[in-house]
Every structure is written in structure tokens, then in C-alpha cells.
Simulated scan of single mutants.
Amino acid sequence: MTRCPVLRRWSCLFKGPLLVQRYLAGDPQESYELAQVAEFTQCYRQRLADLSWFMKCLNEPIARQANQEDGCTGHFWEARFKSQALRTEAALISCMAYVDLNPVRPGMAATPEASEHTSIRERTTPRFDLAQAVREQVQMEALLRFDRPVKPLLPFEGAFADREQPGIPFAFEDYLALVDYTGRAIDPKKKGAIAHTLPPILQRLGFTPDQWLNQSTRFEVLYRLQRRQSMV
């Protein structure tokens, strides 16, 4: 019997009440218990789609850990989060570059590929092995679980001409060059920037253009090949 995906997803974050635990375990329940589980499900569905609830769940453990380290109390973040719609390709690429340069601007990393927490680092030195996930027949639902440390990133369209779903509408080489150029701009309000003495990012990564094209497409080609073989 398939259990409710809303409850399974919620259980990745929280233990949940005993009624929900029993339901997910497949234990027999009375009609009034199932009615209560349905009410929990509706509540959890609304919370999982609520940005404010997501930010609450994200902020609380970070604040507790930071306060314990600093021996203080109170909010960790200075202001409430902002939700900004990205309605154009320019807005999308600007936001992506902003996030990838976040560790550089405060001086936490010299370059975006040197940081542990950027998409550029994951794309150039991937921790998620797509080929292994295919071999293990990992289902998409498992990839979307909150408790997975690393998830596959959406591909750049420019790198994959024959794709099954739309990706990011840029070539990855162009995006790398854009982030590298933007990161070298000096912002008087920020501590860090990519040093002008450093070579271009593809040189820092040790790739020629041809080598990079092969590197950036190899995982997708391998994924498609192995999936076809598994379907035979």
C-alpha cells in the first residue's frame, strides 16, 4: 500500500505524532484515527508549500547553533527574508551569479570554485555521482528528500543539445566567464573580490575549451546511456 507522499516528505524533517508514525509504518488504524491523519496531512501540505514556514525551519537550527557557539540569545539573521520573482533570463542569471559569489564577497573564499558551498564547486568537482544513482536505480522521490546531503543540479541548456527537459538557458562556459568577470569587480561595501592577478576561471580549473566541453557533457551522456540499458 502506497503511503501519502506529503507525510513521507514531512517525516524527512520531523518525527511527527504517533498516529502519523503508525500510518507510515502501515499499522492498521480505526476510521477516526485515519480522519486525524488526514487533518495532519492537510496541515503539512500547506506548510510544505509555505515559504515562511520553510525559512522558519531553516533559521531556527542555525540560530540555536550560532547562539550556543557565541553564548548569546536572539535572532541570528538581521532582517526578514525577501521573496523576489525572477521573471527574465537576465534576472535568473544575475541571481545565480550573486549566490555563487556570496562566499567571495565577505572574504570567505578567494574564488567561487574554492568554496564548499557554491553550485560552481559542485559542477566542477561534483560530489553527486549521477552514474552511480542510475546504477542503484535511485528514484526521483528519493533524490528530492530533505535528508540527502547532495542533489543533482539542473543542466545548462547550452551544454546539452539533446535533452529531455529544459535546463538553464545558457552555456556553462559563458556562465563561468560571467561569474569570473563579475567577481573581479571591486565593491566598496564588500571585503572580497576575485584577484585581478588570477588567470581566467577555465585556466584555474586546468581545462582547455575542448577538455571542458567533454568534462561538462560526460555525466549527462553516461546517464542517458545507462538508463537506456536498464530499460532493455
Rank of each mutant, 00 (worst) to 15 (best):
Q165K: 12
L143R: 00
L153M: 12
R163A: 14
P149H: 12
E164F: 01
R121V: 03
P106Q: 12
P149S: 15
P169D: 04
A110C: 13
M140V: 15
G107F: 02
R148I: 10
L153C: 06
A161S: 12
F128Q: 00
I168T: 11
E164H: 04
P106G: 12
F160V: 15
A159N: 14
I168C: 08
P126M: 07
E157S: 15
E116M: 10
R123M: 07
R123Q: 03
F160Q: 10
T118D: 11
Q132H: 15
R145Y: 05
I168K: 00
P112N: 04
R135N: 12
T125A: 08
Q165I: 05
E136C: 12
Q165F: 13
F146Q: 09
A161M: 07
R127A: 01
T124C: 10
P149G: 12
A109V: 13
A131R: 09
T124V: 13
F146M: 09
P155S: 04
V104N: 02
S115C: 11
D147Q: 10
R163Y: 01
F160G: 05
D129R: 00
E157W: 03
P166S: 10
V138D: 02
R123D: 00
P149F: 04
K151I: 07
L154V: 14
R135E: 13
E113A: 01
F170W: 13
F146C: 09
I120T: 04
G158E: 01
L154C: 14
K151D: 05
R163G: 13
A110F: 02
A109H: 07
L154T: 15
E157I: 02
A142V: 07
S119R: 09
I120N: 07
A161K: 12
A159S: 13
A131P: 00
V104F: 06
A131W: 04
T118M: 03
A110I: 06
P155D: 06
Q139H: 11
V104P: 01
A109S: 15
S119W: 02
I168M: 06
E113D: 15
L130E: 02
A110Q: 14
L153N: 06
M108L: 15
P169E: 03
P112W: 01
E113L: 00
A114Y: 08
Q132R: 15
R127Y: 07
T118L: 05
P169T: 07
D162E: 14
T118V: 02
F156P: 02
V104E: 00
R163S: 14
E122K: 08
E122G: 03
F128S: 00
P166H: 05
